[in-house]
């Protein structure tokens, strides 16, 4: 079994209102913060032992469902 740690974030060109709100909060708390982007983290455990196949499957899953390519970028790391 392999585990994929998936990160999905809004593309840089897309305004992230949640990130902006948190950024403002941190700045108002006087932390030296430049910017904040909020995304999603997902752990997917695969019933697949072959790393090559697992990568292929993960790319497909990420493109089809876990991210919306119109507004988001994804990345993942395989573990195990």
């Amino acid at each position: 079994m392999l585990k994929a740690n998936v990160t999905v974030v809004l593309k840089k060109s897309i305004l992230d209102p949640q990130g902006s709100a948190v950024e403002k909060a941190l700045k108002s708390m006087k932390y030296p913060v430049e910017s904040v982007r909020i995304g999603k983290f997902m752990e997917v455990t695969l019933a697949e032992a072959d790393r090559g196949k697992a990568e292929e499957i993960m790319h497909e899953i990420c493109r089809k469902l876990l991210s919306n390519p119109v507004i988001e970028d994804y990345s993942f790391e395989l573990e195990g």
């Binding site: 897309i14 209102p17 949640q18 919306n68 119109v70 507004i71």
Partner: peptide, 16 residues
């Protein structure tokens, strides 16, 4: 928009 019949996407409201 999610299924691609219409372009673009709907994000969190600007004011949250």
């Amino acid at each position: 928009t999610e299924c691609g019949l219409l372009p673009g996407a709907l994000l969190r409201n600007a004011g949250l």
